[in-house]
Amino acid sequence: MSALIRYQLALLLRSQRWLPPVLFFALLIVAGVFGGQQYGDSLGWCAGMLVPGAGWLTRTVLSGEPAAARACASAAAGPRRVQGAALGVALGVGAVLAVVAGVFEWTMSSPPPGVPLSTLPLGAIARDGGAGIVVGLFVGVALGAVCAPPVLGRPATGVLVLAAASIVLLVAPWSPINAAIRGAASPGPTVFPWWELAAALLLLFLCGGAVVRSAGRAA
């Protein structure tokens, strides 16, 4: 499995296909700073932007290998393991992006107007906001996985569904990422997003499992 992960990671990094989704995500994060963000609020923004960011990145990783090369690797290791390795690479690179973006947002944040920094529960804000970022990462990777072949074969369909589903998940009040953002940005004391985290993990397991199971299916 480590050989497959190494291969998929090299395939992503050396192909420069990672650039568009990473630049897009960086742009969203930087754009958020111009809103003059506060602690908590900023981590919620980071969590939210991970949905389209990590989603696009995951789609890129899963669709990056030419079909014939995928067939060669699949013959050697089995299509499900190849797909699993690609999904693992997407999750790993997404996690790196999430950490970098989270730290960046934190350093650019300021306390709410009129509130001295010393009175803010910074530890709790960081913990709950960080958990929110994990929710965003899981939801993004799960979404990107189902928007890539073999589930959604056509590039146009995949990208459009990814964009539309990102927006729906961000604004719908029932969605775990929406709840996590609201929790992180609440003016009062923040709450740890327990059910949101559990729901995002379940979503990742369901979508990831479906994508791995469908690998190698004639399509």
Binding site: A10, L11, Q16, A68, A69, C72, A75, A76
Partner: peptide, 16 residues
Amino acid sequence: ARRAYVPERFPAALPF
């Protein structure tokens, strides 16, 4: 356990 496949057309579009 050890399997190998040579496809009809091998893609040049690999960054290696």
